[in-house]
Amino acid sequence: MIPIDFEYHRPKAITDAIKIYQALTADNKDTVYYGGGTELISRSRLNEITPQAIIDLKNIPECNTFKREAGQIVIGSTVSLTAIADTPLFPLLSNVVRSIAFRTARNKITIGGNLAGDTFYREAILPLLLSDSKVVLAGGKGIRQVEIHEIVGKGMKLAKDEFIVQILINEKYTKYPYFNHKTTKQSKVNYPIVSLASIKVDDRIRIAFSGVCPFPFRLREIEDIMNNSAESPGERARKVIDLLPSAILNDMHASREYREFVLKQSLCKLLEHVERRVS
């Protein structure tokens, strides 16, 4: 039971969505874009957010695209996690999103929602960071294409009036060897305490993290350490800890110390996997 009321709009075109957004905000209405909506429904039920209008993007054709085209994988923002998990155009991405929530929830959660929502794990972003993906955004300034790295910080750096239309992944990245590993507190169905994803591009390991810090990330310095095969996996894992972009999370899912342990274990597992593959 959501106690508040809001307007609901379901435009059929990007330009319409933008126009509606502008009109609503001009009218001082707290307006949000809506994908799968699971987070919005949960949070407004708990009165944590009180949007006055929502714009459902699911009828916009560009947002529903999911195809391989001209050397790219194109994924519309309202494509469900299940669709991505079941269609392995990018196997690493399929694997990572398959570990989010559970299947019935994934039928509703969209990749755009996973990336742009408030829940900070945003696991779907890991393969995108690794593959230097591009993101098509639409907003007041029109449609623009940006590098994923440009909009990923401690939160998503989208303008208020912007929404994700599509994600573009260079197809070559779907062919590299990959690895992903998610650890939860206990039940498999839960938020990650450590989730990492990795691909090996031209003999160099790329790695991205979720659950470790209160935002997902990929750092060059960490990858430098990981690729220093002169050092043992354990040593490298220890050094990675020192380079993390914030203190390790300490919350009800796991203590900081345990997360650190799991992270080291996961990193060693990853290195073992990758380096055994090569040798």
Partner: peptide, 15 residues
């Protein structure tokens, strides 16, 4: 801190 079935962990069928 965990007043929901999302965070109040319960064994599911796969385990």
């Amino acid at each position: 801190l965990n007043p929901q079935l999302r965070t109040y962990d319960i064994l599911r069928s796969s385990e």
